[in-house]
Amino acid sequence: MRIVVLVKQVPDTSDVRKLDLNTGLLDRDAGEPIVDEINERGLEAALRYKDDNKGTEVVVLSMGPENAIKSIRKALSMGADSGVHIVDDSLAGADALVTSLAISKALERTGYDLVVAGNESTDGNGGIVPAMISERLGIPLLGFLVNMEITEAQVSGERQGDDGTANVHAGLPAIVTVTERFDYARFPNFKGIMTAKRKPVDTVTLAELGVDAAEVSSLDRTEVISAVERPARTAGTKIDDDGTAAATLVEYLATNRLV
């Protein structure tokens, strides 16, 4: 069984995140780059299956600039067996269409039985790349799982909505996305960090994936029309109680759609 975990390097969620107002892109130098926590949770689920099932191979796949290798190494130090790093200058600022194309090609190259992704990243919050990969590769998608059970032939889990819980399953190969209901990841241990240095990481360009630049540029691409700074926080509203405070408060909450 080969499980490929998709890993995105994002700016630390606890740091201040900045939008470059000229490009409309995230300023990736503004915060410490880390593995998106949702991907760590997915990795943990894959590693637990590996813990119980010898012969399981866990591959982490990341598309990102040179320094995304740091996130791949972190995943390797937690217990993944090998890494795939898609690096290509033409991918800077890639949207979901381009990203899903590159990742799909890399998945075909690496081979997979199960692909584990996060439901959405904490930087872009798009949440559509896994669905696009599913379509490009023609494999079933089990999205927004709150738990997951993997067997040799299929993957199953629960998806919770406002109205109930759906039990879903799919034969392998398949792609799943995990939610924050999955457990926190394990900490890398000292031995894991030392052995991670020796684990193989396959660094590939778009050309090596068989994607030519013309194909990428021919794709419809998301365009950023404009970017504006978040308005500064304004002072709160004070309601003086002259006997009508309750009514004023209700009206305030209603007009601001807070209730």
Binding site: R73, K74, S77, F187, F190, I193, M194, K197
Partner: peptide, 22 residues
């Protein structure tokens, strides 16, 4: 030989994270 500065800083980052969180 195995304890070069880069390796060491990587280890200390993870170790610090562990101490802070656990």
């Amino acid at each position: 030989e195995h304890a070069d500065l880069d390796t060491v800083v990587g280890i200390l980052e993870e170790c610090g994270d562990f101490m802070a969180k656990v």
